[in-house]
Design a protein around this nucleic acid. Structure first.
Lengths: 228, 228
DNA sequence: CAAGGTTATATTGTATACTATTTATCGACG
DNA sequence: CGTCGATAAATAGTATACAATATAACCTTG
């Protein structure tokens, strides 16, 4: 018997209510629509989706494991607040992982890869919506790493992305982050075209550490002391 | 007001039922007490802990995010089966992260670090319980990385450890894995004492890739085709 | 007796109901 | 007037109950 001759979708993985909620909440947190430190009211979320709070809690438990929210017993879940040292550590790991990814991907890149990356860059520059920027930013990076054929590595990078993205948004909006990102992205594409692995690795590293640096400079100093 | 003058514990983080269950289930999965592919019956777990299945489900949702179980709608959660390519990718990332960790840690290691590492090695060799081996193996590695003062990096390494540990158990028990691990561990300690970062990095990398290699050789070939 | 349908059972997923705990409100007391 | 304590409201956490679906047992039919 030939396998899956009609390319049937996997019905057993149809999303449950809690999975739908996970997706929405994750996007909301990443987009910075929920202030960090502010408690997430289970009943409110439940009413938004017209469901009970059971699936809401299951969704929050998942997001807790992803590091996006934190539970405090009898006080509920709050959006995780990332300290500056933690941010620095995350970028340190990102550099490590993303440099590895792009190195592995480089030999398998084709003109289609570059074209796709440039298309994303263009869309990025034409876009005015801040929320979409971050999304396209990830798409760009993912596009460069995908040829590596390392789903585990990429999912790990993505999970870190998800945690820091709402801070990046800040940085991109305030400084000339967008133009700088575009410049650096296009330069990386060119380096990839040349096929010089060391150069590409160096550029990706500088790009990421640069972003981290700007982010640091634009972080409000009082994020530890402000109340309410 | 002086901060926490009596070093008070944080009572707001007292574990809820679901968190207790998470911990136990996680340990059971890591220890290989639950066969991969076999469904985890929510009511069974609930009865074991004499609770309802609500906290059990929340626990499973957490473990799903950690990659230890997978949900199939209306069929429940099963222990995640890791394919050989996935295992290889995980080790690839482990090498990357652990080499980085030990490099960062090296300059901050003291004689206390080495003594502690040696103590763990000794306990490892004196131990006959397979389950305890893996635990001590992690303790050894964590001991070497802890001086790096990179909690995020170490937690990432740990999460990968947790996913592959039940396969390592297999490998350690079947081959001369235990003796070899001890030999290599002690050699790594010596290299750390010498303070030669490149040498240490190289040894850690060889150690990990070696483990992965042996693991690969001892994996049953039929793990994709065997039914029931 | 084989193949396919049909009912029964088991299991998951979610809503409702209840309990435990925290937080806000308010009054007694110094 | 402020502080302490009691009470009330709000919210989290969990048990029970029920609905949706899958699996197994059985039955029908050729």
């Amino acid at each position: 018997m030939p396998l899956n001759p009609i390319n049937a979708p996997d019905l057993s993985t149809a999303p449950s209510t809690s999975e739908v909620i996970v997706k929405h909440l994750r996007e909301a947190i990443i987009a910075g629509k929920l202030d960090e430190g502010e408690p997430i009211r289970q009943d409110d979320i439940a009413q938004m989706f017209k469901v009970s709070k059971i699936p809401v809690r299951e969704a929050l438990k998942r997001l807790e494991a992803e590091g996006l929210v934190m539970f405090q017993r009898y006080k509920g879940a709050v959006v995780t607040k990332i300290s500056e040292p933690e941010l620095a550590q995350m970028f340190e790991v990102r550099v490590l992982l993303e440099v590895k990814a792009v190195r592995l991907a480089l030999p398998h890149m084709t003109e289609a890869t570059f074209a796709q990356a440039e298309r994303i860059c263009q869309e990025f520059m034409d876009e005015s919506n801040v929320g979409r920027w971050a999304e396209l930013n990830w798409e760009f990076h993912a596009c460069l790493y995908e040829p590596a054929q390392r789903p585990f590595l990429i999912s790990l990078i993505r999970s870190i992305h998800d945690k820091v993205e709402r801070y990046l948004r800040l940085q991109m909006a305030l400084s000339d982050g967008k133009e700088r990102a575009d410049r650096e992205h296009r330069a990386i594409i060119e380096a990839c075209r040349e096929g010089d692995a060391d150069k590409v690795a160096d550029m990706v590293e500088r790009h990421l550490t640069g972003v981290c640096q700007t982010l640091y400079e634009h972080l409000p100093d009082n994020r530890y002391t402000h109340h309410g």
